[in-house]
C-alpha cells in the first residue's frame, strides 16, 4: 500500500471546520493509497460547489470546471485516454440540479468513471438554499416557508436506468467509504456513490447525530448486491433507518469498450497517419 501522505498537499483547505467533505477527502486518499494509484496517475474532475473544490486538497491531476458540467468533461477526458482512472466529484446541486441531463446521459453511456456525489441536501457555496435532495418543507432563507418540491431520489433513479454500480456512503464512516470507492474504481463502467454528507453550516437537520442514529451497514444484512428488486425496495424505504454500502452491482459494457476504434489503445497514444487521410482525400 502506498503511503497516504503522498496525497497530502499544503494548499490551504477552504472548508468549514467539521465539514463532512473532510471525511470524503480522507476516504478518497485512503482508497487511492490502498489501490497504489500514484497521484500523477489519477484524474479528478469536478463541477462547482464546496464538493467540487475537493481536487484542490489532494495531490492529483484535476480539472475543476463549470457548475453541473463535470460529467461531459469526464466523458471527453475518458475518450482521450481510457487508461487513466477518473473520479468525478460533485455536490447534490451540481450533479442532480444543474447537471441533471448530463447525469442521465452518463448513465446511458455507461462511461467508465467513478461519480462521487457529496450529498448534503443543501447549497453550501451560495450559503444555504434548498438543494434537489432537500426534503419537502426544508426551510431556508430562500425557502422561508419551506422547500416546495419533493426530493430527488438518486438511488432509485440510477437503478431504474440500469446503472451497474450503485452505492451509498457516509462521510462519518471513512474506512467504509474508502472501501466502497476502491470497489467503484475497480468496476468497469459507470459507478456511482451517493455520499451522505453533513453540512455543519447550513443544514441543521441532517447532522452527524441524525445519520449516526440511522445508518446501518448493508454488509451485515442479507441484502445481495445482485438483487435489483431488493435494492429498489431498500432505496425506497423511508429514513428511519438508512442502509449504507453496495446497493447494486451487475456486469455491463463500459462506454469505451463500445467504441471499436478504442480497441487499438487510448486515442492520446495513437499516431497520426497522414497517408491514410491523404488517401481519403484522393479518393473523393
Amino acid at each position: 500500500m502506498t503511503d497516504v501522505s503522498l496525497y497530502h498537499n499544503d494548499f490551504e483547505n477552504k472548508w468549514c471546520p467539521g465539514c463532512g467533505n473532510f471525511g470524503v477527502l480522507n476516504a478518497v486518499k485512503s482508497a487511492l493509497a490502498h489501490m497504489d494509484i500514484p497521484p500523477e496517475k489519477v484524474l479528478l474532475i469536478s463541477g462547482i460547489g464546496q464538493a467540487a473544490k475537493t481536487p484542490h486538497f489532494l495531490n492529483c491531476n484535476f480539472f475543476h470546471g463549470l457548475h453541473g458540467r463535470a460529467l461531459p468533461v469526464a466523458t471527453g477526458a475518458r475518450l482521450a485516454n481510457h487508461d487513466l482512472p477518473i473520479l468525478v466529484h460533485m455536490g447534490d446541486g451540481d450533479c442532480y440540479g444543474e447537471g441533471g441531463n448530463h447525469l442521465l446521459a452518463a448513465m446511458r453511456r455507461n462511461i467508465d468513471v467513478t461519480l462521487l456525489i457529496h450529498d448534503n441536501r443543501v447549497y453550501g457555496l451560495t450559503k444555504g438554499q434548498a438543494s434537489p435532495t432537500a426534503e419537502y418543507g426544508f426551510s431556508t432563507k430562500a425557502q422561508p416557508f419551506g422547500a416546495l418540491s419533493d426530493p430527488l431520489k438518486p438511488i432509485p433513479l440510477a437503478l431504474s436506468q440500469g446503472v451497474g454500480f450503485i452505492a451509498r456512503g457516509y462521510c462519518g464512516e471513512t474506512d467504509h467509504l474508502s472501501r466502497l470507492i476502491q470497489k467503484a474504481i475497480a468496476y468497469p463502467g459507470f459507478s456511482m456513490i451517493d455520499i451522505l454528507q453533513v453540512c455543519v453550516s447550513y443544514n441543521p437537520v441532517n447532522t452527524y447525530e441524525y445519520y449516526n442514529e440511522r445508518v446501518y451497514l448493508l454488509d451485515e444484512t442479507k441484502h445481495r448486491a445482485d438483487d435489483w428488486h431488493g435494492a429498489m425496495d431498500l432505496s425506497l424505504q423511508g429514513e428511519d433507518r438508512i442502509p449504507i454500502g453496495l446497493i447494486y452491482q451487475k456486469q455491463t459494457i463500459p462506454f469505451t469498450k463500445r467504441i471499436k476504434t478504442l480497441e487499438h489503445g487510448p486515442l492520446f497514444h495513437r499516431s497520426f497517419d497522414p497517408a491514410a487521410v491523404q488517401a481519403v482525400l484522393d479518393d473523393l
Binding site: R69, P72, A77, L267
Partner: peptide, 22 residues
C-alpha cells in the same frame, strides 16, 4: 470518436475534456 452529446453544453464541455486529456 464522434459523439452525439445530450445537449450543446455537454458538446463543448466534452470537447474541452478531450482536449485536456491530450
Amino acid at each position: 470518436v464522434v459523439e452525439q452529446a445530450e445537449d450543446e453544453i455537454a458538446a463543448i464541455n466534452m470537447a474541452i475534456g478531450a482536449s485536456f486529456g491530450g
